[in-house]
Design a protein around this nucleic acid. Structure first.
Lengths: 250, 250
DNA sequence: CGTTGTCTTGAAAGTTGTCAATACTTGTGG
DNA sequence: CCACAAGTATTGACAACTTTCAAGACAACG
């Protein structure tokens, strides 16, 4: 709750100071296009744990994640759930041209999103190629990572799954400049054991056991439950089962 | 091989008679736009089993599947492979704006594709909104189905996976008008047991056993190895583990 | 008619899930 | 300030499911 207020510290009316200005769906817009987007945008915040959208809901808006983390997931009748996406700042929520949400979206941390009413956004997109082009690029990237995740879900062992998740989180922190890709780097887990299990297609007990196993093997060091130190990044990458040619974390 | 020749029976220079004209990436093009696409297109055929692209290759073209079936898949160093897409007529291969292929593409039946050299296609896309718009729509659809498949891979049992695959194939035949969605409908499996296993994240032995189990339970009837009769479609859908509200095969 | 690729089935082993008990952390209220 | 409750995480024992290894059936093809 405090976080949400703090995160809204930039001027919510000024796209120029927006922290996701250069990566979100609007990143290719010219100043005049940005003005038109500005006219239909509004911010919305959710507390950690709150639902943003339920599968089957009518979507009245599309949105960009400004700060915080949300998950995209699917739940079966008997309660089994599978996460199908992790939404980080600059990621896009919703789909122009469809009005029923196919998946649940839940805030896992305090979350602020920049919403656009769907109808005006669709009209704007039709007249503004730079939005559609950027959205296509983002969607193709997401499709590639969904397909990479299918390999993890379908073919990797529990231990490889955990190592893969840690490697992904490490790579993301490096890309965002949070830490250099050195040995000895550390990272915070943004997810509970249960959320990790939902991401990886495992039970939370198996997640816990495999994290303990990686700790016992010296691949990672735990500080508390959520902070991980990686003594040797290459050792971690070797545990993912992936090809490691072409250098680490590229 | 005969198939490839037969499939090329329509005039390959006339987009008007193209069997995927109304569903492929070009489906929204006006006649003049089609002429420009026409100028950079060429057909290419592959025999069943042949590779179309290897992961890591430079992509010199993008393409639409005209006839036949191809798979998109990923292989680990030790040989474990996961299929991440099934490419059917009208599906798009390749990605504007990237020149290394992220996945292997293999023809599983005789295959004919309509290729566009990548550079000219990208230029044309920049000046022809109807292509980009259609490609965005197709990519969003593929992303949704990739995410649905993540639930299958991560959370379903072997039996549910087989039932889900059969349900998908049945739904596709209904949508294409090959058969009405009646009880007693039948379908041909376009994949070997091994390819099904790669799609479902199973071994081919488990695929075989679960097909036998569904047969023994009366959910399906086998005629030969590749032809399936579905006595009661709702019984099959119940085996998928999915919610079946809202009518079958919708 | 043998070869090859595909498919089925069995038995044993291994991995992961299930059920259960316990510990740790945090926040609330007495 | 302490006690308690709730949420989160760890660990053990056992069960269940899927894989692995192996043998053999079946069909297509030269």
């Amino acid at each position: 709750m405090n976080t949400a207020i703090k995160d809204a510290a930039f001027n919510p009316r000024d796209c120029g100071s927006c922290p996701i200005r250069h990566r979100a769906v609007c990143s290719r817009c010219e100043p005049d296009e940005l003005d038109r987007l500005d006219a239909i945008k509004y911010y919305r915040s959710y507390e950690a744990g709150q639902p943003v959208i339920w599968a089957g809901d009518h979507m009245e808006f599309v949105a960009s994640v400004v700060s915080g983390i949300a998950t995209l997931s699917q739940t079966m009748e008997d309660g089994r759930t599978q996460m199908v996406g992790l939404l980080l700042p600059s990621d896009f929520i919703g789909r122009p041209g469809r009005d029923l949400a196919p998946f649940d979206v839940v805030a896992v941390s305090d979350l602020t999103v920049c919403c656009f009413r769907k109808k005006p956004f669709e009209e704007l997109m039709a007249s503004t190629p730079s939005i559609g082009t950027r959205l296509l690029q983002m969607t193709l990237d997401e499709l590639d990572s969904a397909r990479e995740w299918m390999l993890v879900l379908g073919r990797k062992t529990a231990r490889e799954k955990i190592a893969s998740l840690l490697a992904i989180l490490a790579r993301r922190d490096v890309v965002l400049g949070k830490t250099p890709p050195t040995s000895g780097m550390s990272l915070d887990l943004p997810l509970t054991r249960e959320a990790m299990a939902d991401y990886l297609g495992l039970t939370l007990e198996t997640v816990s056991r495999q994290i303990s196993a990686l700790k016992k093997a010296g691949v990672i060091i735990l500080e508390g439950k959520r902070h991980v130190i990686i003594p040797d990044i290459e050792v971690l990458l070797a545990e993912t089962g992936d090809d490691v040619d072409g250098g680490p974390l590229t």
